[in-house]
Design a protein around this nucleic acid. Structure first.
Length: 1020
RNA sequence: GUCGGCAUAGCUCAGCUGGUUAGAGUAUCACCUUGACAUGGUGGGGGUCCUUGGUUCGAGUCCAAGUGUCGACACCA
């Protein structure tokens, strides 16, 4: 048979025959099952969503970099999203998961530049258009690989909606928003101190700077003092003195705390810095006016060593008296704080670097200029020409050596410092003054803070609300321009004189003025409108384009990547270009956002801003922050450590379902997850367990009569129509065992737990709930109870009711597990009953009736029955009695009636069922109710009831006595603690009545147990 | 430096508004293969709930301090 043949190699299921369960391989092999069903889902458009009357459930994917490759972080993130989406879909919602990629301007541009470099092409040799051609080619070649990989994971994205942050609709949206914000006065252009990445050659936002701890040096440099407050240089005339520079010498004590340095060249101040090369940009020295050490420097001028520039000593309380010597060199062009001082005291900013952080020849010209103004002794000066063109760190090393050699360095100390580095290229940031575009953030912060603080948007875990608030309350303007080509080019044009030479160029023309518009044509129109004088430059009618007397030059810069990402939840539904369209109305706001806390500012906060600015509503209702995936030693996964497994290899090894489960088993929201392959192994083992449970059930002969299920079709498999389906809810079918009733109750209770877990986004707990439900309750208890006995080597047939119920349970379990393990559940769901073409578990809804008090009582009773079984098994284990050997259980019913319902009813209808269940599970030949247990029996307590297993002479009296004695002591200890509590008057007075009552009952139970244990001991 | 989180079994974590002498998964140990599954079954062992103090009749849970750890932000040149 076909089935037999296949089962040797792999494990396809017989979907029609229904028979042949026994011929299934004993191991589940996911490889071809997964490919097959993913294709089936695609073919049947099961992921696709269109607006309709159902409640929408929307997730937009955090777009991975277009050239990215799937890593473990994605696996975690996308698995969570897929679980949420599949869960919502099975709740009957219109689930829509929109996939896409991000152009990641700086990262992608860097990759393209690298690749070009490998081909010997320099970016600077290309025009913008040529470069972009390469970039698009690269994007098309590598782009979307990651989206293909998501399919292997089982992600149920609506692929027809796949978007890219730089595709047509998204780009247009970005431009529209830029223009809009500019017109609202929220975007401006100006010269500011920005974070400059000298490798990528672009400005960065504050968020793109990461601080790294580094061991560096602190250099103490000598700044010689000009002897008088005029700018006379230190020189010959100074020789007459070893004259102290101190004012009021020997006077009233002012300057008593002065710390003065002097050597044979004269008096000097000492300035400590980590960056000696920046002295070339020094324009002042600053002291704290309250610093007693440096009073003597007030009003003086000092000479910048090496450079020879004479600079003033200024005073500002900004300077920290405690740090270094209390003397701060001021380099406005290369330090944010110095820049502020420069602004305050109107100091010149000398930019000493080129864009790539090599030393600019400006240092040499500045030196010549200052030396021409004031002459300083030659031995204070080194010709700066020698540093021009050197790289900043090489220069630092060199200048430090040179200063030591020239006697201009006081000392050098080791120093630990935190250095701001580019998040992308990793190189240290150079603070740099430059003209950039900014978005004013105060307004954005104002509209986006309260929705999070008052939980209109809920964060999971909520602790990130603090982080969010802190950032918004200290917000700074967002530098949105990047000196890159790959990205959305800023829609700003500058008015310049046109090519027509005869027209007037001078005068009141707005040369250099900026026009912001959606395109050049608009800009042109707007320019004429804004500056009517330009009309006088227009060529005679009929002339076209460049024939005018002015032209427009578009800004070279591109926008920060996040300036497009922040519109993602809106632009995906075309809400910017086409406000109020059907899709945006239906899908927005989205339901859940799943992302890492590392981009809370980059992305989450800014999406919230854009959401309120453009839709007047939050972009999502819940944010689920995932943790960082680390290895089992807690280290971040990284390429250099080689500790990051390839997700695709893992999928090959454990199956996608196994990997998903491995990821989710230890991924509570917000906590870092320590990933270990053994978790995937556990996932795979679980799949195998499900598979084998299915083999068991499928191996049962279908009881007759066996009407084709066609008539009732799918309805027969759904518990939602309660009265029609499982007969258990209504009238109990004759042959239905207590096991069936119990498991049905169990399912309903579990469904409620699951719903609760999902509502709190506790997905790993939800997974653990179904894991235990399937493995422990269903497989280990339920199936073991209903599994047919073997007679003469043959399994007995299963009765019809049990058979039907079991299949229905299986189906419900598959549905519960499906969001976590989509492939195996689809495979088995399809094989469980005959299905119509195109049907899928994906669209099967799962609604169970609420659990009742009776359900809970049944489960409680059943737990007691389980305890009895476990206790009997323990007796076997301790006495080395083979599982096959049948035993007898005695229920000791003393005259004292058991205190209440806690005692297990073993009489009556339910009692009989429980009794039978216990017999089967503990392999007993009988359960006898006795008033006194047999001699030579081992006894145990469940609740306050006593049970005994007669063992005849197998019993070891001494061991038994010991065991009972230990148990007795334990309970007596417990009793003592309860008695003590009850003896405390204040407890009885203050504690709620119910609590006191509970304690009384505990005491009564303990007393009863003690009595029964003493009796047992005595009877030994 | 400022702010915040966390600290419970060997490991990873639950433990919700204080109320059984603290739970799960995994690991570990012992025993068990003819009947779905050794990727399995059964049973067992394993905790000073970080420390100290406080509030309370009662604290793993609340408060304070300390220690350790992780993170965010700010940075001193």
């Amino acid at each position: 048979m076909k089935d037999n043949k296949n089962s040797e190699v792999t494990t396809p299921l017989p979907t029609r025959e229904g028979q042949g369960g026994g011929s299934l391989a004993s191991k589940y092999s996911p490889a071809e099952v997964e490919g097959k069903w993913y294709q089936y889902w695609l073919d049947n458009k099961l992921f696709s969503s269109k607006p309709d009357g159902r409640e929408p459930y929307t997730i937009v994917i955090p777009p991975p970099n277009v050239t990215g490759v799937l890593h473990m972080g994605h696996v975690l993130n996308e698995t969570i999203q897929d679980i949420l989406v599949r869960h919502a879909r099975m709740e009957g919602k219109n689930a829509c998961w929109v996939p896409g990629t991000d152009h990641a301007s700086i990262a992608t541009e860097a990759k393209v530049v690298n690749r070009l470099a490998e081909q010997g092409i320099k970016k600077s040799d290309l025009t913008r258009e040529e470069f972009l051609k390469h970039a698009w080619a690269w994007t098309e070649e590598h782009g979307g690989i990651i989206l293909k990989q998501l399919r292997k994971l089982g992600c149920s994205c609506d692929w027809d909606r796949t978007a890219f942050t730089m595709d047509g609709p998204r780009s247009e949206s970005v431009i529209k928003v830029f223009v809009d914000l500019y017109r609202k006065g929220l975007i401006y252009r100006g010269v500011r101190m920005v974070n400059w990445d000298p490798k990528a050659l672009t400005a960065l936002s504050d968020e793109e700077v990461v601080y790294k701890e580094e061991h560096t040096k602190l250099y103490y440099m000598k700044y010689y003092v000009c002897p008088s407050s005029d700018s006379s240089p230190v020189g010959a005339e100074n020789d007459k003195g070893n004259q102290s520079p101190l004012p009021n010498r020997g006077g009233d004590g002012e300057g008593a705390g002065n710390v003065v340095h002097k050597d044979d060249r004269g008096y000097y101040a000492v300035v400590a810095t980590t960056r000696p090369e920046t002295i070339m940009g020094d324009v002042a020295m600053c002291i704290n006016p309250n610093d007693p050490k440096n009073q003597w420097l007030k009003g003086k001028k000092v000479i910048v060593p090496v450079v020879g520039r004479v600079i003033p000593v200024i005073e500002d309380e900004y300077v920290d008296i405690e740090f270094g010597t209390g003397c701060l060199k001021v380099t406005p062009a290369h330090d944010v704080n110095d820049y502020m001082l420069g602004e305050k005291y109107n100091l010149e900013a000398i930019d000493i670097f080129n864009d790539d952080a090599t030393l600019s020849d400006r240092i040499a010209t500045a030196q010549q200029k200052s030396l021409a103004e004031v002459s300083v002794p030659d031995d204070f000066v080194i010709d700066l020409q020698r540093y021009v063109g050197t790289e900043r760190f090489a220069c630092r090393k060199q200048i430090a050596e040179d200063m030591v050699a020239a006697g201009l360095m006081e000392k050098i100390e080791d120093y630990d410092n935190k250095i701001g580095c580019s998040e992308r290229t990793g190189v240290p940031i150079e603070p740099k003054l430059s003209m950039q575009w900014f978005l004013k953030m105060q307004h954005m912060a104002d509209i986006s803070l309260s929705p999070v603080m008052n939980d209109d948007i809920q964060f999971y875990p909520a602790k990130y609300k603090n982080t969010y608030r802190h950032w918004l309350e200290n917000i700074k303007d967002w530098c949105i321009s990047r000196q890159l080509w790959w990205g959305h080019r800023i829609p700003a044009w500058y008015i310049e004189p046109g090519p027509t030479p005869t027209l007037p160029r001078e005068g009141a023309f707005p040369w250099g003025k900026v026009i912001v518009a959606e395109n050049e044509e608009e800009a042109y129109k707007l320019a004429l409108e804004t500056y009517p004088i330009l009309k006088t430059l227009e060529a005679p009618s009929g002339a076209v384009g460049g024939a005018t007397g002015f032209s427009l030059r578009q800004d070279e810069d591109a926008l920060d990547t996040w300036f497009s990402s922040w519109l993602w939840p809106i632009s995906l539904f075309d809400g910017i270009r086409n406000p109020g369209n059907e899709e945006i109305k239906y899908y927005y706001p989205t339901a859940d956002l799943v992302t890492g806390p590392d981009i809370i500012f980059f992305w989450v906060a800014r999406m919230i801003m854009a959401g309120y600015e453009y839709e007047g509503m939050m972009p999502f209702k819940h944010v689920y922050f995932t943790g960082i995936v680390r290895d089992k030693l807690g280290r971040k996964m990284s390429k250099s450590l080689g500790n990051s497994p390839d997700p695709l290899e893992l999928i090959e090894k454990f199956g996608a379902d196994g990997v998903r489960m491995g990821m989710m088993l230890s991924a509570p929201a917000g906590n870092d997850i320590l990933f270990d392959e053994v978790l995937c192994e556990q996932g795979r083992n679980f799949n195998n367990k499900i598979w084998n449970a299915f083999r068991l059930v499928k191996g049962w002969e279908r009881p007759t009569p066996d009407p084709s299920r066609g008539g009732r079709g799918e309805a027969g498999a759904q518990l939602s129509n309660e009265s029609e389906t499982l007969p258990l809810t209504g009238e109990r079918g004759e042959g239905l065992s207590l096991a069936t009733a119990w498991f049905e109750a169990k399912l309903r209770i579990a469904a409620e737990e699951l719903a609760d877990d999902f509502s709190k986004y506790r997905l790993s707990e939800a997974l653990m709930t179904v894991y235990k439900l399937f493995w422990d309750e269903f497989s280990s208890w339920y199936l073991e109870m209903v599994k047919p006995a073997y007679v003469d080597g043959k399994p007995q047939p299963v009765d019809r009711a049990t058979y039907d119920a079991t299949l229905q349970f299986f189906e419900i379990l598959l549905k519960m597990m499906h969001p976590f393990m989509p492939f195996i559940t689809e495979e088995l769901w399809q094989a469980l009953y005959e299905r119509q073409p195109g049907e899928s578990i994906m669209r099967a809804e799962l609604h169970l009736p609420a659990a009742t008090d009776a359900d809970r009582q049944l489960c409680t009773d059943f737990e007691a029955a389980k305890e009895i079984v476990t206790a009997v098994r323990a007796v076997r284990s301790q006495k080395n009695i083979a599982p096959k050997e049948k035993l007898v259980l005695e229920v000791v019913s003393n005259a004292q009636p058991s205190s209440d319902s806690e005692a297990l009813p073993l009489t009556g209808e339910r009692g009989e069922g429980l009794s039978l269940a216990i017999q089967k599970m503990a392999n007993l030949s009988a359960v006898n109710v006795v008033t006194e247990k047999s001699k030579g029996s081992v006894s145990f307590l469940v609740g306050t009831n006593e049970y005994a297993v007669p063992l005849g002479n197998l019993i070891d009296v001494e061991a038994e006595r010991k065991k009972l004695q230990a148990e007795l002591e334990r309970i007596e200890g417990f009793q003592a603690s309860v008695e003590k509590k009850l003896a405390n008057e204040r407890f009885v007075q203050n504690a709620p009545a119910a609590v006191v009552e509970m304690e009384r009952k505990k005491l009564a139970d303990a007393q009863q147990k003690i009595a029964s244990l003493r009796e047992s001991l005595a009877s030994l």
